[in-house]
């Protein structure tokens, strides 16, 4: 299968669009991923909000036994990132030596996995240390 168009599509999606969440019009609570129901006040009126993509590591784990599709990547580190804007999200940590709780990180677009030998390459946000 020729996947170059798909991959070009991934690249064209600007980084900010991967971090599109929502903001409550009533209480201003920020949500990632986008929510239809505010988790703080219960309002159903929310609008788009783009996250900056910086934050710090809240918790992490180094995966040694992976799910199918990720076996080739072990060991890799997954973490819950506390975004500077507020909400938390889960992503892999890359380009880092030793990871620690509280470490400052920023988002980057990276390959996650490939569907088989000639399938689609899945891209999404990972985080790397700042500075």
């Amino acid at each position: 299968m020729n996947v170059s168009n798909v991959v070009m599509g991934w690249r064209r999606i600007r980084k900010g669009n991967f971090l599109l969440g929502s903001k409550c019009r009533k209480c201003s609570k920020l949500h990632f991923p986008a929510a239809r129901l505010c988790k703080k006040c219960g309002s159903r009126e929310l609008e788009d909000y783009r996250f900056k993509g910086t934050g710090k590591i809240y918790a992490y784990s180094e995966v040694r036994t992976a799910s199918s599709g990720f076996e080739k990547h072990v060991p890799y580190t997954v973490a819950i990132i506390e975004l500077d804007d507020g909400p938390k999200m889960t992503a892999q940590i890359v380009e880092s030596g030793k990871v620690h709780v509280g470490m400052k990180v920023e988002s980057c677009l990276r390959k996650y996995y490939v569907d088989g030998d000639s399938g689609i390459i899945h891209y999404w946000i990972k985080f790397r240390p700042v500075g």
Partner: peptide, 18 residues
């Protein structure tokens, strides 16, 4: 938003443990 990133149930419980 969790499994897609390669997070396994063990790694999520790993974070709870941590």
């Amino acid at each position: 938003y969790e499994a897609y990133t390669g997070a396994t149930l063990a790694s999520l419980y790993g974070m709870i443990t941590q």
